[in-house]
Nucleic acid binder design. Structure first.
Lengths: 172, 172
DNA sequence: ATGAAAGCTTGCGGATTTCGCAGAAGTGGG
DNA sequence: CCCACTTCTGCGAAATCCGCAAGCTTTCAT
């Protein structure tokens, strides 16, 4: 065998999950490296990941499981919605009066809403909508979003062409 | 490359990948079901998928490989950027004069740009930026995007809180 | 009709991976 | 020091992955 990287590994980067103040787990360098590996290929074997990050297969397995359990990451198939039958997408900018977060929560519960973010720009909320056709999209925007109490106005940006969609955070 | 291919397509049910007019492969119900399985768990074994969609393990394996090769889907780990050290994100709306698509292509080549879409709204392009800190974000927006010839003006929406991020198209 | 091309199935081994568990090692508190 | 806790490692057993081959059916073109 080889002992190429027998680190004494003192406690500076050993902590794989400490709770930070806002509840999101703090990730050490090794977990980040694992995530990076899985961002390149979500099915990469644990042994290969272990070799890349300097850990045993079992250790990688435990870390990955924990990251999944904690909700830090998820390993999923992603596609261009257009190729799977969703022909209409739009980003909707929303002006809210009153409690922004409760509106955001309501949007989150809608299955057609793929993405919700509260922003500091001229919109209070940006929400991405994925629908099957124009009627569906129109229905969601006009009947369900604009009808919410607290929604002052909306502006829609219908998608014409998706140019890029990456999941390589940390890979650069 | 192709001559006049006046096909009288009769059976479009069984065909797992025919080229449609815009080059995107056409997916049948079985491939959609496979994608759906992998959207729930990107590491689900082929045999389990086969049982769920009514195909043999080998057939699922072939289909998945083809879907990956074709770029229809990718199996990756996705995270909340905030938990992996990217503290500043923003959506940038861009007004373009001239060739919109070439601007979009340029944005696509930037590593900080996570998402690029051409829209039919008041913005010509929406681009999502992922940065490590404020300086980085400012630099990308002001020095690199607004400096592009053809970019008339931009409007930024800095993310305050990500509320939802799903990859479950077809799962509903 | 005949043949080529795709796609699926079944079956098969061997290589690889996953999985659970026991033990070792490092950490922190009392 | 000792104990509780966590993490890592090593190791068998089970499951999965992977390539391949033969046979079948459907579709499409000659």
């Amino acid at each position: 065998m080889q002992s190429e990287h027998v680190a004494s590994r003192s406690a500076d980067q050993r902590d794989s999950s400490r709770e930070s103040r806002n509840g999101t787990p703090q990730l050490d360098a090794v977990s980040l490296a694992i995530i990076q590996q899985l961002q390149e290929d979500g099915r990469r074997p644990y042994a290969a990941i272990g070799k890349a990050v300097g850990l045993s297969e079992a250790a990688v397995r435990q870390r990955v499981q924990k990251l999944l359990d904690q909700g830090v990451m998820q390993i999923v198939a992603v596609t261009d919605p257009l190729t799977v039958g969703f022909r209409r997408q739009a980003m909707v900018g929303i002006h809210v009066e009153g409690d922004v977060e409760s509106i955001a929560d309501t949007l989150t519960d809608m299955s057609e809403v793929e993405y919700v973010v509260m922003t500091a720009g001229s919109f209070d909320i940006l929400a991405e909508i994925v629908c099957e056709d124009d009627d569906h999209l129109l229905d969601v925007i006009n009947k369900r979003i604009r009808a919410l109490p607290g929604v002052r106005s909306t502006e829609s940006f219908v998608y014409m062409k998706l140019k890029k969609q990456t999941y390589m955070w940390g890979t650069r």
